[in-house]
Design a protein around this nucleic acid. Structure first.
Lengths: 225, 225
DNA sequence: TTCCTATACTTAACAGCGTTAACCAACGTA
DNA sequence: TACGTTGGTTAACGCTGTTAAGTATAGGAA
C-alpha cells in the first residue's frame, strides 16, 4: 500500500517546490512581485495548479510565514544557553535585528502586513508550535522576561511578563520596521539600524531593571558610519 | 483676467474633493478598499478623470499623506508649551499613540507602507515643511531631544539628537504598528496599546536620562482591561 | 456671429491580478 | 477492458491601475 504514500510524497514535493519559488520571489523581487501567476511560471505549472495545493494566496503566504517563524525561533535557540536573563534579552534583540536586516521582505510579510482575513484561523500545525519556546519565538522572549521577573531583576511594579515582553518586542520591531517602511525617506537623516537598536535595547533594559541592576550592561560602545 | 484663476480654483476644488473622497474611503473601509475606480464613483467622475489631477495612484496617496503628516504635527503643537523636555517627550509619545489609535488606516499608510517608487521625490511643497517644527513632527521630536541634551538631562554618551529621536520614535511606532499588523493574532495575549506604550515610554525615558534624573517621572499608574 | 483652439471630461481598451468552472489525460482498481 | 479518482489544463469572470482616442464646451479672435 506504499502507493498512496508515494503520491502523498509527490504532492508534498511540488507543494514545497511552490513554497520555495514563492520564497525566492520574495527575496529577490520583493513583496508585490509575488503573484500567483509568477509563482506558477517559476515552477512551470499553470496558475490554477497552485489551488490544488493551497486554498488561496492568503494561506500559501501564511504557510510561507510559518516556516520563517520557525527559522527565527531556531535563531533564538542559539541564545538559550545564556543564563543571565537580561543578557539573554540583549542577545535576543540583536538576533531579532539581524534576522530583520537579512530578510527584510520576509520581515515585512511576517510582522508588518495585517492578515487579509482579519480573524486568523488556528490551524492544528500552529497549535503544536504555540507556547513551545523552541519553536515559538514569542514564547522564548516571554520566558526570558518571566525568568527575569522571577529572579527579581526587574522593577517591582513590572509583574506581567506578557506586558513587558510586548514592550521589549515593540522596541526592536519599531526600529527595523521603521527602517523598512521609511528608510528611503530622504527627509530624515537616518542612523543605522544597528546603532538605533543597540540604543533602544540598552535604554529599555536599563529602564525596566531594578535600581540595583540598572547600571550594569550596555557598556561596550559599537562604532559605525 | 480672473478667468484663469477661476479655472484654477475650480480645478483645485475637484482635486480636494477627490482627496476627501479617498480619505473617507480609507477611514471607513480600510486600505485595500481605496481603488481609483471607487474614488471616482464617490466623486461621480469617470475613473480616468482622476488622472487629470494626479499623475497616478501613488502620488494621489502621497498627497493624502502630506496633509495627514501636517495634522499630526499640529497635534504635537498643542504640546509645545510644555517646558520640561522629558515631560514633553512623554506627552509626544501619548499624542502619537492617540493619533495612531484613532486613525489606524492612515497610520498604516503613513508609517507602515514602503513607497512604491523606492526613491521618493522631493517636492517643493515638502521642502517648505521639512525641518520646521510647527509642520514637521519629526523636527519637533528632534528639537525636544536636542533641548534635553543641551540641558544636560540625558546620559553623557547620548550626544546625537537624531539617533536618540529615532530610538524614541521607534519605541512608540513599534507598539502601535505591531498592534495594527498583528493585533488580531489569537496566539498572543495582547496587552492594550496604551499600557504597553506607557511602559515603553517610561522605561525609555528612564533609560536615557542622566542618573540624577532617572528616578523622576512615570509615577502615575494607569489602569485598564 | 462664426470659427478655432484649448481644456475638462468620457468611453473603450490593455495587461495583469486572484479565482472558479469545465474539461482532459493518466493511473490504480475491479 | 471499463471506471472512477486524481493532478493537471484551458477558458473565463470580475477586479485592478493606466493609456489612447474621442467629445463637448467655453473663451478668444475674425
Amino acid at each position: 500500500m506504499g502507493i498512496n504514500e508515494r503520491r502523498e510524497r509527490e504532492k508534498e514535493a511540488v507543494r514545497t517546490k511552490i513554497l520555495d519559488a514563492a520564497r525566492a520571489l520574495f527575496a529577490s523581487d520583493g513583496y508585490e512581485a509575488v503573484t500567483m501567476r509568477r509563482i506558477a511560471r517559476a515552477v512551470e505549472y499553470s496558475p490554477t495548479a497552485l489551488y490544488l495545493h493551497f486554498k488561496d494566496k492568503e494561506s500559501l503566504i501564511r504557510d510561507l510565514c510559518m516556516t520563517d517563524f520557525q527559522f527565527l525561533a531556531r535563531a533564538f535557540q542559539k541564545i538559550a544557553k545564556e543564563k543571565d536573563p537580561l543578557e539573554r534579552l540583549r542577545k535576543i534583540g540583536r538576533a531579532y535585528v539581524d534576522f530583520a536586516s537579512e530578510h527584510p521582505n520576509h520581515y515585512r510579510l511576517m510582522f508588518m502586513t495585517p492578515p487579509l482575513n482579519a480573524a486568523e484561523i488556528k490551524t492544528e500545525a500552529m497549535s503544536e508550535i504555540h507556547g513551545n519556546p523552541e519553536e515559538d519565538a514569542y514564547a522564548f522572549l516571554r520566558g526570558t522576561i518571566a525568568q527575569a521577573i522571577a529572579e527579581g531583576r526587574l522593577r517591582p511594579e513590572l509583574k506581567d511578563p506578557d506586558l513587558v515582553a510586548q514592550a521589549a518586542w515593540s522596541g526592536t520591531h519599531g526600529v527595523v520596521s521603521l527602517h523598512i517602511a521609511k528608510g528611503s525617506d530622504p527627509w530624515i537623516e537616518w542612523r543605522s539600524v544597528k546603532k538605533t537598536a543597540a540604543l533602544i535595547v540598552d535604554a529599555l533594559i536599563r529602564g525596566i531593571s531594578r535600581a540595583s541592576d540598572a547600571d550594569g550592561g550596555g557598556e561596550k560602545q559599537e562604532r559605525e558610519s
